[in-house]
């Protein structure tokens, strides 16, 4: 049985009349961390939005668990947790309320204890748990959103610039978290322009430029991708 969980097959996407993704192909296996690296406007977030069913493909297919996303969006979404670039949670709610609300919408029931544990796992300060999120810094919001994504316990995680706004210590903690989740079998697709961060956690990296894949790198036997190589390729081929 194939263990391919996420697959882009000749995927092209338009926003209005503008092509954003052009005939891209990649596969992500179970328990793999796949990073899409690219500059601004490369089409990274568009790729995730297409896999979430937020954008229809112009041609080709976005496939999750062997099923075209657009053939059964609801079923696919139930297997995916998504962490958007800007942590999109409600300012009028506390971190705990936000998590409770979004989990309940996804039909998931978690105890307060489990929610607090998840917030601790992402290192959100205790005193912030019951404050309205409108007072949160960008990093605190991001941590809450990560906790929400973790609590959904989905087999696939889509992360859009997940370390944006996090301090260096939190980034390290986050990278460890990603590594442990992948080791536990979670498939992770992250899009980022942080070459260093991607090389720290990803098993494979693909470079995206103006909607087209322009390079890819795989981890060596030690499980690492050479940062210098990727950085050079990114500077040469993907940065725009």
């Amino acid at each position: 049985m194939s263990n391919i969980v996420v697959e882009a097959r000749n995927l092209s996407v338009m926003r209005g009349q503008t092509p954003v993704l052009s005939d891209i192909n990649f596969e992500v296996r179970k328990g793999e961390v796949f990073a899409l690296l690219g500059g601004n406007g490369a089409g990274k977030s568009t790729t995730l939005h297409t896999f979430l069913g937020l954008l229809p493909p112009q041609s080709g297919e976005a496939i999750l668990f062997g099923k075209a996303v657009h053939s059964d969006v609801a079923s696919v979404r139930s297997k995916v947790a998504y962490l958007p670039e800007a942590a999109t949670l409600y300012g009028h709610l506390t971190a705990i309320e936000n998590i409770e609300y979004f989990l309940s919408l996804a039909g998931i029931k978690k105890s307060s204890n489990e929610i607090v544990q998840a917030l601790d796992r992402v290192s959100l300060q205790k005193e912030a748990h019951n404050q309205n999120m409108e007072r949160y810094s960008k990093g605190m919001r991001q941590k809450t959103a990560i906790a929400l994504a973790l609590l959904r316990e989905t087999p696939v995680l889509f992360l859009d610039e997940p370390t944006s706004g996090l301090d260096p210590v939190a980034i390290d903690e986050f990278n460890q978290l990603i590594t442990s989740l992948a080791a536990a079998g979670t498939t992770i697709v992250m899009v980022t322009h942080d070459v260093y961060g991607a090389c720290q956690v990803a098993h494979r990296i693909a470079l995206l430029r103006r909607g087209a894949l322009v390079g890819s790198f795989e981890a060596d036997e030690g499980g690492k991708i050479d940062t210098e190589t990727v950085h050079a390729a990114f500077a040469e081929r993907a940065a725009s």
Binding site: L52, A74, R77, P84, T88, Y90, F102, L105
Partner: peptide
């Protein structure tokens, strides 16, 4: 505007 709409959609809402 707050992009929570996408978050709702990502939770399986239509």
């Amino acid at each position: 505007e707050a992009r929570t709409f996408d978050q709702l959609i990502a939770q399986g809402m239509t």
